[in-house]
């Protein structure tokens, strides 16, 4: 319990300095770097162009609403090929991968995901020019009082 509480307090204070923290975290997170390498094949991932929209406080970790929007004109020559959603503190960090193309018209997906813990939800997007971009959002998952046995 106390470890949870500490984590909760740490993430609360981290939220206060979120912009700096996110960048710093992205630069010095070996697990994330390894995951990203696996997904991109080692291509550098830049921060930006990807917006991850989740409530900062999730009602229940079993079902957290998620919307990912990538800034792209979605034309034949300039579009998003793929969006991959990561939740590093889940037992299986790769949540889902979506293939898009010029037919999509808009690079946006909405779904609901499971989060095993308080964490950053990261989305990385592969563009038609071969570049990778990423965005993230911090989500606090609260505990329910009346759990069923």
């Amino acid at each position: 319990m106390s470890a949870d509480r500490r984590r909760f307090l740490i993430s609360c204070s981290a939220m206060a300095v979120a912009p700096i923290w996110t960048v710093a975290h992205a630069q010095h997170n070996p697990q994330r770097e390894a995951l990203l390498r696996e997904i991109t094949g080692g291509v550098e991932v830049r921060i930006g162009r990807v917006v991850v929209d989740t409530p900062p406080l999730a009602d229940n970790g079993h079902s957290v609403p998620l919307r990912v929007v990538v800034d792209s004109p979605m034309t034949a020559t300039d579009h998003v090929r793929r969006i991959t959603v990561l939740a590093e503190r889940n037992p299986r960090p790769v949540v889902a991968s979506y293939r898009l193309g010029p037919h999509s018209g808009r690079a946006e997906i909405t779904t609901r995901i499971r989060l095993a813990d308080i964490q950053d939800v990261v989305a990385v997007a592969e563009l038609s020019d071969g570049n990778w971009w990423m965005g993230s959002a911090h989500v606090i998952v609260t505990e329910l009082a009346c759990l069923e046995g």
């Binding site: 889902a96 293939r99 909405t110 995901i113 989060l115």
Partner: peptide, 24 residues
């Protein structure tokens, strides 16, 4: 006949999965 969207999902997707995406 043309594939315009594909989702590859894992156990991190909620039960009774739902998705919204766009098509031109």
């Amino acid at each position: 006949g043309v594939e315009v969207f594909r989702a590859e999902m894992g156990s991190g997707v909620s039960a009774n999965p739902q998705l919204q995406f766009y098509v031109r």
